[in-house]
């Protein structure tokens, strides 16, 4: 077949290419550039090759130890909040009314925490959990529990986890609620006729319906919590010690506190790659799990 070759159409893509280059590719390349250099200020840079990356991934190096510890804390934080927020969100969505005036009230109340900006959430909890003037902190410490998020490891973790659950469980619950609403009544009637218990109904009908929305919900919550910065920064400032310092907080300390641009750049690249690959693996696994075993043969249909 004779195909006219004319590549002038590429010019139509040029404006977009320029904008993307300006706001994404060039800044990213700057980071890549920093990651292979070192500087002592004065805008003077020295070639360092893959040095920072080697340091970063070596647990015995100063940078590596710091990075891996922060990464570990981030992973733990994400796993803990996911394992609380997902079951709790599903449970809340199952308990929400399906019709009537309660629906609107529930939806509004559930949506409220989602509308509060991160630093405001941080500030609310920073005050709420204080033992001197905060209601939560005061109550807990007056119950005789040693609670002080500024100097005690468990209190600090407890506070930021509780804060995240308070802030984001609604997201999972609302997504699940939407998923549950989409299943027709006939399914529940059939399950009753089949003598299914409440648990069987959940396993056989509701959970499969939630598959898709949970995939989105878990992805969103994983990415968000893995990159969390503002809330713990406002509440604990990463402390006591480094105990609530995630990679984001550490990154800012290195980049802006110590002005180690090379180290920070290498760290951001690795951090970014970890998030991308985790999401990709997660998404691929989840979409393959619920794919049908094999599509119906075209031949069957034609016969």
């Amino acid at each position: 077949m004779e195909k006219p070759l004319n590549n002038r159409a590429w010019f139509l893509v040029m404006p977009v290419a320029l904008i993307v280059a300006f706001n994404a590719i060039l800044p990213l390349m700057t980071v890549v550039n920093y990651s292979v250099q070192d500087t002592f200020g004065n805008n003077q840079f020295f070639w360092n090759g893959t040095g920072w990356f080697k340091d970063l991934l070596d647990p015995n190096a100063e940078l590596g130890g710091r990075f891996l510890a922060a990464l570990g804390r981030n992973v733990s934080f994400s796993l803990i909040i996911l394992s609380i927020e997902v079951p709790l969100g599903i449970l809340v969505s199952l308990c929400m009314p399906k019709k009537g005036p309660g629906v609107a009230a529930c939806l509004v109340i559930m949506a409220l925490p989602l509308l509060v900006p991160w630093n405001v959430v941080g500030t609310i909890w920073q005050i709420f959990a204080r033992t001197d003037i905060g209601l939560l902190g005061w109550t807990v410490s007056h119950l005789g529990i040693n609670y002080n998020y500024t100097n005690e490891f468990f209190s600090a973790w407890f506070t930021i986890i509780l804060m995240d659950v308070w802030h984001w469980t609604s997201l999972i619950a609302l997504l699940c609620y939407a998923g549950l609403k989409s299943s027709p009544d006939a399914f529940y009637q059939a399950a009753r006729i089949d003598g299914a218990s409440r648990w069987s109904v959940f396993r056989a009908i509701e959970l499969p319906k939630l598959n898709r929305v949970l995939l989105i919900g878990v992805l969103l919550r994983f990415m968000d919590s893995f990159m969390i910065y503002t809330e713990p920064f406002v509440v604990t400032g990463g402390g006591p010690g480094n105990s609530t310092t995630g990679v984001s907080i550490d990154l800012v300390k290195i980049a802006l506190g110590q002005f180690d641009l090379g180290k920070a750049a290498a760290m951001s690249i690795v951090y970014n790659l970890i998030i991308l690959s985790t999401c990709w693996v997660f998404y691929t696994v989840m979409t393959n799990v619920d794919a049908p075993d094999r599509p119906r043969d075209a031949k069957d249909g034609a016969l």
């Binding site: 006939a186 399914f187 059939a190 056989a204 619920d290």
Partner: peptide, 14 residues
């Protein structure tokens, strides 16, 4: 009793 509905009701994951 058993009932067959207008739209097929099956348990998708099974």
């Amino acid at each position: 009793i058993a009932q067959v509905f207008q739209f097929p009701v099956i348990y998708d994951t099974m």
